[in-house]
Every structure is written in C-alpha cells, then in structure tokens.
Amino acid sequence: MIRLSFILAALLTATSASAMGPWKGDAPACGDEVACPLGTRSYHVMEPDGWDGESPMPVLLHFHGWSRNGIHPQRSERVGASTKRRGVLLVTPNGERNTWRFWQSDSEDVPFADAVLLDVARRYPIDPTKIYVSGYSFGSAMAWRFACQSGNDVAALLAVAGSIDQTETCPEAPGDIRHVHGLADTVMDFPMGPGNDVTYPVALWRRALDCATARMDQGDWQVRSFLTLSRTTWDCAQGDVTLDLHPGGHFIPHGWIGRQLDELLHLTPSYP
C-alpha cells in the first residue's frame, strides 16, 4: 500500500535534487507517448497545459480499458483533455497483456500502481493530498481494486462503468467515491441490487464509509443535450459517496471526468 509519508519523502528528494526542466534526479526522460520504465513494466505521464515546471500538481491515476494501453486515455477528449485543461497530471499505467487483474485482493497490479505513484513523485512535484484514481470498464474495476487495497491516501475514486463484487469488505477506502454507470450497460453489466435497487453499484462503499441509509436525490444534469445523468448522494460518517446513472450503455459520458475534477478542485464547471 502506498503511504502519504512515502510520497512526501519522494517529493522532498525530487525537489532537493538538481533538475533539468521538470525532470528530477537521474530518472530517464519520458512523457506523453514515451513510456516511463518501471522494472519490467511501464506507465505514461502527460503534463497539463500551462504548467510552470515547479508547482505541485494534482494527479489522476487512470487505468485503461481492456485491450488498450496507457496512451489511449491520454488521447481521449473525455480523459486526457479533461486533465490537461485543469492543471492535473495524468498518469496512465500499462496493464500486462493490455488488461488488469482485479478479481482478487492480492492482485499484483495494486503494488505496481503503488510503485507508479512513487516513481511519479520522484519525477514531478505532486500534491499528495490530491491524488485521484479513475478507470474505465476493466480499468474502472481495477481502480476499485486499488482503492479497496490501497485507498487511504487516495483523495477520490472516479469510476466509470466497472466495479468489483459489492459483497467484498475493503481494508482501505478513499474519502470521496464517485461512480457512473449506464442502466443499459451489457459489457460490464449494471450491478442491479435486490428488488431492482439501482443504488447497489456503490453498496460496498456505502458500508465502508458508514453512510446513512437515506439517500439524497440531487436531480438530473447534462453536459451534452443527448445524455441526461441522474445524481444520488449519501451523507457518510467517513466521506462522501456519489452515484451518477444514465440510460445508455458502456462508455465514458462526455464531460463526466471533467465535472468531477471541477468539483474536487473547486473550479468553475466547464466542458470538456
């Protein structure tokens, strides 16, 4: 599991080392489509627009979908464009064989993702209080797994159309949970609860964060006119849980990640 103290130590080491541009220490340069090597594996990193090369940045650790790699979310208007415009460093690990192992709690991809964040902190000045984790499809399930096993130092989970078994008990959890899912999703099937309970997709986190039974209907919202999302939230003793539902299938809704980042960073809502 990654610990905040480790991130802070890596950040102090990086900022005290001699720098050439934003790169710290003797780490080999990488970025955008040039992968950052990490042992036998790798990840990609993409700087936001207008970064001054010194200021600590929020981080979005995003797990790609099945059969993809870390470059795909960088090129996506619904992921990469959202981070570039909001001052967020996008970090996209590469899954082995273009997939993730999220079914079991002892997944080797969890310590790999921990190591990715530590390596990023050695290369870049990051804000350890603003580490966000997201993913799409299989990548969303991997984001859930990471948050479940190593989420205490994660500020928020931004999950899109994928999850783990709602009956699990997680040893760790972020303080802010945000999940979006399509009611007509047949790829990562919508996890309907008993009695057709449409709030079941976040049942695990509602238990973990000790949420009140009563839910709060926050109404409908749109970024694009052709898709309406309905938001439900819960008042929780140890954080916040938000569920956005839409009538569509298996995709990242336009502007969804951007809206979550705007709310988390207290920015004026914008699109994309």
Rank of each mutant, 00 (worst) to 15 (best):
P125D: 07
R101H: 12
L261I: 13
A203K: 07
S270P: 05
I131Q: 01
L183K: 15
S150G: 12
G39L: 12
Q149G: 06
L61D: 02
L265D: 06
V133L: 15
I164C: 05
A147Q: 04
I131M: 07
V202S: 11
V202W: 00
S105A: 15
R78H: 03
Y200D: 08
F6W: 09
F6A: 14
D197W: 00
V160K: 00
Q104T: 15
D185I: 14
S18P: 02
P22A: 06
N98T: 13
D189Y: 04
P247E: 15
C211D: 11
V133K: 03
A147F: 01
E54F: 06
Q104N: 13
G239K: 02
R122L: 14
A184W: 11
Y271M: 07
G50S: 04
S150E: 08
A10T: 01
W256Q: 01
A17S: 15
R231D: 07
R78Y: 07
R224M: 07
R85F: 00
P37C: 08
H266V: 14
P174R: 06
L267K: 10
L90S: 02
V59R: 01
T228D: 00
I252C: 03
D109P: 08
E54L: 13
W234M: 03
P191W: 01
L264G: 04
D235H: 14
R123V: 04
G151S: 10
V120E: 01
I164M: 07
A115Y: 03
H250M: 09
F63G: 00
P201C: 14
D262K: 01
S137F: 10
N152I: 03
E172F: 01
F138I: 13
T13Y: 00
G95F: 02
T13V: 10
A214S: 09
V79L: 06
G65W: 06
D220L: 12
N98P: 00
G25H: 08
P28V: 09
I177S: 03
I257Y: 03
E33D: 11
F112Q: 04
S18C: 06
R178L: 08
F102R: 13
V59C: 05
G195D: 13
R123L: 09
T167R: 12
G50Y: 08
D119V: 04
H246C: 04
R68M: 14
N94I: 09
N94C: 01
W100R: 12
G31T: 05
R123W: 06
L118H: 10
K130M: 12
D210C: 02
W23S: 00
V34K: 15
A208V: 05
P253D: 11
V223S: 11
G162F: 12
D262R: 02
T13S: 14
A9N: 14
A208I: 01
F251E: 09
I2A: 07
P201F: 01
L261P: 03
A143E: 06
D210N: 13
P73I: 12
W51N: 02
W234G: 00
R206I: 04
A35W: 02
G162L: 15
W221A: 10
S137E: 11
T268M: 00
V91Y: 01
R85C: 00
V59E: 02
R86Y: 05
D185M: 15
P58N: 13
G21Q: 11
R101C: 07
G258H: 02
V133Y: 08
A147L: 04
I164P: 03
P22C: 12
S5C: 05
W144P: 00
M46H: 02
H266K: 15
V202C: 10
A203Q: 06
L38A: 09
A208N: 05
G65L: 03
E168L: 14
D119W: 04
Q74N: 05
